[in-house]
Amino acid sequence: MNHLEANELLAALSLDAVDEREREEIEAHVSECPKCRSELDGYMDVATALGNSVEPIPEGLWNSISSHIYDADDGSEPSPSIVTGIVPIEVAAFRRRRARISTKPLLATMGTVAAAIIVVLAVSLSDASSHVSNLQRQLASSNYIVTAALSTPGHTLVDLESSSKQDVAQFVLLPDGRGYLVSSELPALSSDRTYQLWGLINGTPISIGLMGANPSKVTFTVSGAKPSVLGVTVEPSGGSPTPTNAMVASGTFAD
């Protein structure tokens, strides 16, 4: 589906008024076309307003939902988002860990770290092992986002250096707290390991999220206190609540 064909159907897509094949083709185009993405977001706003009619919720519905929430929970990892590529890595990390151990000991261990982690709203990562077509769309989307971030007034660049003082990764942080991986030369890890990104806040390392074994795309949002330092460690694939290894790279935010 070319640009014109997709563009003509954006409004219909926002109303779910296209068939499945058209939906897939339009979404594939939108993931690579910032203009259409922006236009679709505008139509989605209208669709949301149209559907935003609140009604009294039937009694007992919440009880039904809450009684089913663990039915389908098999501990499997969440699948990557198809269109946006945004995967909150805190979510992924916690859910992977939960698949191996029970929740209560984990939460006890997390303690204050869990409370502090609230600064992290969402992080995305790439999963290069599968979903190739998704990754291609995500990459195109990511490149656009990073380019836009680098053009945003007030952005801050953070270069992360290895212990041998070589630049191995660069992040950009926007004034509103959104941050992105610009480039990475971190070597690929084995599949049972992952890079984990940390922010140093008041001297305490706070997990920002997992970067995967071969980082290519990381998106995160930080609210509240801004970290003074970004650091990366190598951790088990599920991530760690606190660093278990020395930083392989770190960088300081310029004031």
Binding site: A47, P78, I86, P88
Partner: peptide
């Protein structure tokens, strides 16, 4: 239940949670 099982599908950069949930509902 879908939000519970796959919260990562919500992208705060693309819109509000209300918008996301309504799109799912529709």
């Amino acid at each position: 239940l879908r939000l519970w099982n796959q919260p990562d599908r919500f992208d705060p950069l693309r819109g509000t949670l209300r918008s996301f949930l309504l799109a799912q509902s529709h």
